[in-house]
Design a protein around this nucleic acid. Structure first.
Lengths: 223, 223
DNA sequence: GTCTATAGAACGATAGAC
DNA sequence: GTCTATCGTTCTATAGAC
């Protein structure tokens, strides 16, 4: 009975929570249109009618799942950014520290979710690929203000760079982050087994360095 | 009757070609699961049964569309890469030239397709996000050999870098390229209108520089 | 080659018993 | 809260007239 406690934890999860978890996995794998209420219910060991009872509709279910996954990550980003600002006193944090605060929380969350480690990476990336209308609104609600915050911070760190260049290269950095998360599951295939996709920290560290270099060299060349 | 010639061109397009074009637009916008045979027929001013007559199934239609769009781009990549090698004689092309040959052909293709300019960018990016099984096979068929080619070329350009680092940073560069293509339509929103998503060449040039910097600084730090 | 009409399956959502 | 059963819709694919 070694695994009794984890079994208890697993079976004690409420139907609602199991439905949310199943929705996250299936949305990450198949996207909004590929996810069906029936597949969610099956994956969660719940009933089709129960899913509609708890959330009312497919739209509302997916929306709530996204809210629960994205908000803690954004909160942690602000936390790390504030720490970096406090650490540097009156001088602005470096681009490296700023991008660390942006990307590192995703690595933490991936490492935390032991089961199907990379589904969060796919989920975050898919949130920016799905064109469904309510997801577009989702971005507006969750990401537009944090994008503004990072632009401000990078403007302070690079006061001589044109604001337009900050915008351009921040956009490139964010796009690279999302692309790398979306593509990470292919790392093994792409490199013919030479690189290991299980090493979360390696991936995150390299990604932070990559976008920092692209950003810094890019904006410095323009100022 | 100013537009008579373009009208002739448009109406002279075969049903088959109109179906392919409609499939490309709708696949880029809605993905595989969001694309329906009915929507394709409607968009192409064709009949639902005609679409099945020409291609046999939805799978076969999408597969053929992807083949027709991807192969010319890959051919142009090889062409530019060969030109760079010829230009440099016995010394290897620079990372900048190598990534230029990888990314520039996409810009050319985007500039060529006057109608709905950015649907190709979304299409290419979506090809790497959709988890549908036949698309995974598609990648194997179209991209695994070209990935090997670029790894070889970069290994020659950076003989002192560990092969694993070449692999890692090439993967980051490709992921950044795909992410930037997928995200480009959001550039205007993301930058609050400051950056213009219509300037294809600007976008492609910045992207080439961005991934080159990320790659070069990354592999140099490791050797 | 292109149409109408439809078969057969899967979907989101709900009614109503427990 | 959870179930069975089902409604109404939409999908892919095909049969058959033209």
């Amino acid at each position: 009975m070694i695994s009794s406690s984890s079994q208890i934890v697993k079976t004690k999860l409420s139907t609602r929570k199991r439905l949310i978890n199943a929705t996250a996995r299936l949305f990450a794998q198949h996207g909004y249109n590929g996810l069906t209420m029936r597949s969610v219910a099956l994956e969660a060991n719940a009933n089709l009618a129960a899913a509609n009872y708890h959330f009312g509709s497919k739209d509302a279910l997916v929306l709530e799942m996204l809210r629960e996954r994205i908000q803690p990550i954004n909160a942690r980003r602000i936390e790390l950014l504030d720490e970096a600002k406090a650490r540097n006193g009156k001088t602005a944090p470096s681009a490296r520290e700023i991008f660390h605060s942006l990307i590192f929380p995703i690595g933490e969350e991936i490492a935390r979710s032991s089961k199907s480690r990379w589904s969060l990476a796919q989920l975050v990336a898919r949130t920016f690929t799905e064109p469904v209308s309510f997801i577009e609104r989702m971005h507006q609600r969750f990401f537009s203000q944090i994008a503004k915050l990072y632009h401000q911070e990078l403007s302070l760190a690079y006061p001589h760079a044109p604001p337009k260049e900050i915008h351009w290269h921040l956009h490139l950095a964010v796009s690279s982050m999302l692309g790398s998360l979306a593509q990470h599951r292919r790392l093994g295939d792409f490199t013919e087994g030479e690189c290991n996709e299980e090493e979360v920290n390696e991936m995150i560290d390299r990604l932070i360095r990559f976008v920092t270099h692209g950003f810094v060299k890019g904006v410095n060349a323009s100022s």
